[in-house]
Design a protein around this nucleic acid. Structure first.
Lengths: 159, 159
DNA sequence: CTATCTGAGTTGCAATAGCGAACCTAGATG
DNA sequence: CATCTAGGTTCGCTATTGCAACTCAGATAG
């Protein structure tokens, strides 16, 4: 296992790094916890609040940020004989966070859960176990040593 | 595309959720940015500081947390004719965050970068483009509708 | 037609965390 | 013996968080 070579600067400048930008949007403990719940199907203010025990004022602000960022949307609903209320649904943009969250879950199960996985993923059609991996177009897994980073020079440090 | 069914509580209680635990460790904007740089090969205090423009006091605290959490380790080094100094290396635990970060990068390129990817991944041996995906043991990609969540009942809400 | 319940917030205040600048320290160099 | 460098710490100020209480709007009950 060779160490990655020492660098003094990242190959992609922070201004151009979409990953870095994404952290402005979701790089916050409560936001991440809200998204975790939302990906499971939680949608309502009081459900988020009760499940996470997040201060209502903070929850309110975080949900507003997520809506502004396009990750969630406010959608009115009404239950029989109740006045109209509001749910927070993931947009398509929000739903696609599923994959990074699954990758993160696998990491966390391995390193923080001692290898126990409270939740596993399975193919409904084939019954096979699913996992997140780095693969080529054919589905062949790449191993760590075989990965090459290709940097688009337009996005490097000083342009 | 059917909506995920409404839930009032997540299927995994927060106490048992390793994903939720991981957010205590890395669910913070600066921590995430530090890890991004570290995965590229940045290791030194002043390099992190200059690249990220993070307050030195905050950087100091975050690095200490990462070391305490087992994600990074302090390692002494000396350059010729310089006194011994310290670098922050990712441990194996830290390195394996690469996959979640690659998944997150792909998400961010798609939704925040308008589809432009400053950085792409390629297989050194085959030259093929690599991407993060949810696959079965054979490398067959699963599509969204075909994913089943299997919950270990021991970790549900009330035990 | 007033009183109560419920879900979805807002408000106010104290405690905490973050920010930026200045300072410290230990050896190597001029 | 003054300066430089890398890796920090300290300090005062501001911004954000956490918590409890309050509001608001409609539906239902008495």
């Amino acid at each position: 296992m060779t160490d990655t070579p020492l660098l003094h600067r990242s190959p992609i400048s922070r201004r151009h790094c979409n990953l870095a930008k994404s952290f402005d949007l979701i790089g916050d403990r409560w936001t991440l916890l809200i998204l975790r719940s939302a990906l499971y199907g939680v949608r309502r203010f009081d459900d988020f609040q009760a499940e996470l025990d997040v201060p209502r004022s903070v929850l309110s602000k975080r949900l507003a940020n997520l809506v502004e960022g396009g990750i969630m949307e406010r959608r009115p609903y009404s239950e029989q004989g109740q006045r109209a209320r509001v749910e927070y649904h993931l947009t398509r943009m929000g739903e696609t966070l599923g994959l990074p969250f699954m990758a993160m879950t696998a990491w966390a199960d391995r390193w923080l859960g001692g290898g126990t996985s409270p939740l596993t993923l399975r193919s409904r059609s084939t019954g096979r176990k699913l996992s997140v991996a780095l693969v080529d177009e054919r589905g062949k897994r790449a191993d760590r040593e075989d990965i090459e980073l290709v940097v688009d020079a337009r996005f490097s440090e000083k342009k």
